[in-house]
Design a protein around this nucleic acid. Structure first.
Length: 323
DNA sequence: AAAACCCTCAACCGCAGCGGT
DNA sequence: AACCGCTGCGGTTGAGGGTTT
């Protein structure tokens, strides 16, 4: 028995969207906000399935989308992020305001892949093409290291990475960790499980307590554990962030990009605002959709309602939440 | 001029994860 | 724990426009 279809296929349009359909969708979202995609088509009077509406909005109609060609700068950012994250297009898109995952994915497949190959670089491994065999051999080995990320501020929400300290320094990964430091704006203390090529796996961190952080090491004695706990306590006072970084090829299965863990890593997107205690979801543009009318969509309203129990509060009484 | 081929990218599809029950 | 419905992600497809022969 298969999965039930997301919509009644017989009564839905497919293919390219018409101007009228676009307008209906925009009008509806302007009034009601994003979300409830399944019921949206009917409510908006569209003969489309919810998925299709969502895609159309996210990839084409959203007002904060950047149009036009990718700049060289964006190219390089995409290449660097891909070397860290692999095909996590949504995560990469999260670092490029105004660009969508679909757009970046297409651009990667049509332009950047070719660009890298012409440079003699394997687009999958980001290594020189003639080192492919060596890379395959290296895949068998995984090196683990523990890193401490030092931050500049006392607020974990606003924490910016200032430098990394490694217990073990895998030579090849150092550049990538450095890249990670510069490209990714860490906003909270957290455990990471990062791999050299195609995964970037933040472990679950419901509350950003360093004591609760689990800096794993492959062979740690009880004494070492005690030492490390002490170090953690000290580092907490110094507003350091302990990370567990595993350097190696991507694990067969990584965390879901849709998971809360993943969201913790996403930046506060261009359309997310922290005005007082107003917060919108990453990617949701309801708050800025209309310059005059500041209106939250239903999902963002719910999120704000839920904040009281879930969010952390800083000294100003404003809550913060990590994405 | 037209056929063949190539390229781009919007849209679709299937699946996994999450929250609710 | 198991199930269900919804959402979002990544891989893939194919229409349409551009280029070459």
């Amino acid at each position: 028995m298969g999965r039930s279809p997301c919509c009644e296929k017989e009564h839905t349009n497919k293919g390219a969207w018409t101007k009228e359909e676009d307008q209906r969708l925009m009008d509806y979202i302007r009034v009601h906000g994003e979300g409830c995609w399944r019921s949206l088509p009917k409510a908006a009077g569209l003969l489309r399935c919810g998925k299709s509406c969502r895609l159309r909005w996210i990839n084409y109609l959203r007002p904060d989308l950047k149009r036009g060609n990718f700049t060289d700068e964006e190219d390089e950012v995409i290449i660097k992020l891909h070397s860290l994250l692999g095909n996590k297009w949504s995560l990469i898109a999260g670092r490029l305001p105004g660009r969508t995952d679909n757009e970046i994915k297409n651009y990667w497949n049509t332009h950047i892949k070719r660009k890298l190959i012409s440079r003699g670089i394997d687009p999958q491994t980001h290594r020189p093409l003639n080192e492919k065999t060596a890379a395959a051999a290296a895949a068998a080995t995984t090196i683990s290291t523990t890193a401490t990320i030092k931050t500049t501020t006392s607020s974990a929400a606003a924490a910016k990475v200032t430098h990394l300290e490694f217990k073990n320094t895998p030579p090849q990964s150092l550049a990538e960790i450095s890249l990670l430091k510069s490209q990714l704006d860490f906003k909270h203390n957290n455990n990471f499980h990062s791999s050299q090529y195609s995964s970037f796996n933040p472990k679950k961190t419901e509350t950003p307590s360093v004591e609760e952080n689990n800096c794993t090491s492959s062979s740690m004695t009880t004494d070492e554990e005690q030492q490390q706990k002490q170090q953690k306590r000290e580092s907490h006072q110094n507003q350091d962030v302990n990370l567990d970084l595993t350097i190696g090829l991507a694990p067969a299965k990584s965390f879901s990009p849709n998971s809360a863990e993943s969201r913790l890593q996403q930046p506060v997107s261009s359309s997310c605002h922290l005005f007082g205690s107003v917060l919108t979801r990453p990617g949701c543009s309801c708050w800025q959709m209309d310059g005059e009318r500041r209106e939250l969509c239903r999902n963002c309203q719910n999120q704000n309602q839920n904040q009281s129990s879930k969010s952390n509060h800083n000294n100003n009484g404003l809550y913060y939440r990590y994405y």
